[in-house]
């Protein structure tokens, strides 16, 4: 069932060039994020080496920003890991969706591609990865935006780490991290079941904040998922009746 275009594009370089051109304007959105990430890590009390270490080991804006308040509050390790997993779950779905695009590509390159998967790269590459035949072209089309994102992210996080030193403490830089999380949540919560999930999870987490080991967050996430699922189910029924 594969659709082969008349002049099928081929070659790693051609793919990389095309992917980079498509992705370049989108990638500008990473800059404020990376700056905030750098400042937030310093705000959480990390040294520049610790901050860059986290940035190199964990390549994930949301999981990094989301776990910072927990790390700063000395929450138990398992809770930090569970929260990071919850924040990364959408990538299980992205990964499953884009996996057929890696047909004919070896396992080490797949690991690299997986490590570098981001929302922006997924959105940019999914369609072409499905419809172009030549594996080197596909790999180039994927890796050029992915590696470019990685470079931008590392560079501007480092800039944020150094900028943080020049900003007075009473400016409450840690609130920048909260705003960054809000910016991520807003487009998600446009769909009604998502909004329900967010409200239930947020409300529960606030009410349950006294639970030991910050267990309230895990309970709140589960409650949010259940509420979102129920709201989606109700929407389907309303449409049918």
């Amino acid at each position: 069932m594969s659709i082969v275009p008349q002049s099928s594009p081929h070659g790693f370089r051609a793919g990389a060039r095309e992917g980079f051109v498509v992705f370049l304007p989108i990638s500008v959105g990473l800059v404020p994020w990376a700056l905030v990430m750098g400042m937030a890590m310093v705000g959480a009390g990390f040294t520049p080496v610790q901050a860059m270490g986290m940035n190199l080991i964990v390549f994930a804006g949301t999981a990094q920003l989301g776990t910072l308040p927990l790390i700063a509050a000395a929450a138990p390790l398992w809770l930090i890991v569970v929260t990071a997993l919850a924040l990364n779950l959408r990538f299980v779905i992205f990964s499953a969706a884009i996996a057929p695009g890696f047909r004919g590509i070896g396992t080490p390159k797949r690991w690299l591609a997986g490590h570098l998967l981001t929302d922006g790269v997924f959105a940019t590459c999914l369609d072409k990865m499905m419809h172009v035949d030549d594996p080197p072209w596909r790999l180039g089309y994927y890796l050029a935006p992915a590696v470019w994102s990685w470079l931008l992210w590392q560079f501007f996080t480092l800039a944020g780490i150094f900028a943080a030193g020049y900003i007075p403490k009473q400016w409450s830089l840690e609130f920048m991290a909260t705003i960054a999380l809000i910016v991520l949540l807003v487009p998600l919560a446009r769909a009604r079941p998502m909004l329900v999930a967010a409200i239930v999870a947020g409300g529960s987490a606030t009410l349950l904040r006294g639970m030991p080991l910050r267990l309230g967050i895990v309970v709140a996430i589960c409650a949010g998922i259940a509420a979102g699922f129920a709201a989606e189910h109700r929407e389907h029924q309303e449409r049918r009746s």
């Binding site: 949301t62 989301g66 308040p69 929260t83 919850a86 924040l87 779950l89 959408r90 299980v92 779905i93 909260t178 999380l181 809000i182 991520l184 949540l185 998600l188 919560a189 079941p193 998502m194 999930a197 967010a198 409200i199 239930v200 999870a201 947020g202 529960s204 987490a205 967050i217 709140a220 996430i221 589960c222 409650a223 949010g224 998922i225 979102g228 699922f229």
Partner: peptide
């Protein structure tokens, strides 16, 4: 699983 990110973000924010 689609609801996990929104729920986790809101639970922190």
């Amino acid at each position: 699983l689609r609801y996990a990110p929104a729920a986790a973000l809101a639970a922190i924010i």
